[in-house]
Write a protein that binds this DNA or RNA. Structure first.
Lengths: 152, 152
DNA sequence: CTTGAAGTTAAAGTCAACTTCAAGTCAAGT
DNA sequence: ACTTGACTTGAAGTTGACTTTAACTTCAAG
């Protein structure tokens, strides 16, 4: 049974984040007689999954939904992971495509000095990138530079 | 001289956003005797620039800094725009590269069923993508699906 | 048994970029 | 002059994902 600071160190998440995730129902912890958290080692795998999902841009709501399909202590089966990684790949592809469209628009602007807009692609990305982003918008690419993990 | 609702309609920004931008020093407006805002037409160009910059992922702080180099009523010169668009292109390239690295990591995971992490690239993006993102992290790709503009 | 590091909670704070609200004022057409 | 839609302000609220704080409790080593 791991203490919160051990899990924090090994997962790379702050202890406060671990408590937050517990409140949010993403992870669970047993308690000592005195009420302190004691984690099973499997939580590290779960946290690794959460980190990966966050890196791909899932919200915690989405992560929670995905985790519900992956029963508590079960290691994802090959089938689970195939489905999930396909989904994530699509997300990433969509985000990449949107950024590329934006970049191409920018390229077409370089040297035209336009920014007079109506014609300029750069402030009309709705036209260029419509339907590229999953609808609901706001894709978040979180810090890729965070401290790493050493989980599992 | 344009009213706030005209500028809102033509720029695609909400009136509340225009007021916010004014408080933040991004745009300016003259006032009528009664204190209502009256905008010059050049504000539309400025707002188009702001929208484009936001689409590329600049924060308002960054936009403000950029705008300071582009005196109030001056149309950006070709040199201005060349510099700026080169900078923006780099940003987009970096973001695209980071996402591609993430996707490639994901591809390398498909079928390996790993997520046992320590070895898995997906939760160790720090290793894969270090220095790709401008430092300070958190790149935000805003809704590309927002209503368009009809400025200028 | 004592001590100090590590743990606990609820509640409030943070950040960015806005939006919403309440309570009132202005502008323009009839 | 009246009406009504547009406008004004400051302050507070929103969202997501946490962090921080305050006030206290528990655990493990010595």
């Amino acid at each position: 049974m791991l203490t919160v600071s051990e899990v924090a160190r090994r997962s790379g998440f702050a202890a406060s984040a671990l408590r937050y995730y517990e409140r949010e129902g993403l992870v669970r912890a047993a308690r000592t007689g005195g009420g302190q958290r004691r984690y099973q080692r499997t939580v590290l795998r779960r946290l690794a999954f959460i980190r990966a999902a966050r890196n791909v841009g899932l919200t915690l709501d989405e992560v929670r939904a995905e985790l519900k399909r992956l029963p508590e202590s079960r290691t994802p089966t090959k089938a689970d992971w195939t489905r999930i990684s396909r989904d994530w790949r699509h997300r990433l592809d969509d985000q990449i495509a949107a950024l590329q469209a934006l970049r191409d628009g920018l390229d077409s602007c370089i040297g035209c000095g336009c920014l007079s807009l109506r014609s300029c692609a750069m402030s009309n990305p709705a036209d260029m990138a419509a339907s590229l982003v999953p609808s609901g918008g706001a894709v978040f690419l979180p810090a890729l530079l965070r401290r790493g993990t050493d989980a599992d």
